[in-house]
Design a protein around this nucleic acid. Structure first.
Lengths: 134, 134
DNA sequence: ACAAATGATACTCTTGTGGTATCATTATAA
DNA sequence: TTATAATGATACCACAAGAGTATCATTTGT
């Protein structure tokens, strides 16, 4: 089970690399080389981040990407939700409505508690906090 | 993302049903009917539980399954690990060793903390505790 | 001996993850 | 002003895991 998928992971690294670059914009090719991520895959990821307004893009020759917000305002949870959808731990349980016996309810309650905790932890992680120790 | 997959969920319900049955053994067919779970799928699940020693099976006509341990000693985490493998939240991160920059390390640390919390929560859940409120 | 159960396996279908591949569009630098 | 180097938009593909089916062999109570 993975909390964080590959695309989210790559997104975090790419954003960190953009944040710590001295250049105004960084191209996908540059990032791909530096981070050793397949270029076409990284492009797809950057396009998604752009659509969500997390980074800004500049088209044309010598174009590229730059952050659209302060690293302190970019949350890990937000990135996860771009690539992995809304964070829920109990997907399958909730789909099986009128739960056949009341049994699963205490389970669901527990899982909801766990979910709340995990979400609060993930909310506290920003791009800035990940950069600090770099 | 699901913390608990369908087979684990079914296993919990089946065990609960066996535990609360007055009969000495309960057959897969009976359980499947009562819980509205596809019989062949449930059989596979019960066989797995049997192999792991969580339930005992009796073969032949009027055979079936019974618990092999006290419900207080059957842990949700144990059941999850039967069907979902050892519980880890950071699978994909750990696979990508010599992490290209130190960046991901604080992330990993955080995820490990979250993992520890979730595991401790899951460990505290037993079949008995799920049965109580039924 | 037959029916009703489990044991063991192998197969299928669908979805999600981790990518590729193309073509169109934009803009700058030569 | 035109070639080139970037992004935008899509469509596709391969593999693995999740969710379940299907068969056949074996055991045992009636």
């Amino acid at each position: 089970m993975k909390l964080i998928t590959r695309d989210t992971d790559y997104a975090v690294r790419a954003l960190a690399s953009i944040a710590s670059s001295k250049k105004a914009v960084v191209s996908a090719g540059e990032l791909a080389g530096k981070l050793r991520i397949p270029r076409p895959f990284l492009r797809k990821i950057l396009q998604a981040l752009n659509k969500k307004g997390i980074i800004k893009s500049i088209k044309g020759k010598s174009g590229g990407f730059s952050l659209a917000a302060d690293p302190k305002k970019i949350y890990l949870l937000e990135l996860m939700e771009v690539f992995q959808g809304k964070f829920r731990l109990n997907e399958c349980l909730l789909k099986r409505r009128p739960c056949p016996n009341r049994l699963t309810c205490p389970l669901r309650k527990k899982i909801s508690n766990i979910e709340r905790y995990v979400v609060s932890e993930l909310k506290s992680l920003t791009l800035a906090s990940l950069l600090k120790e770099d």
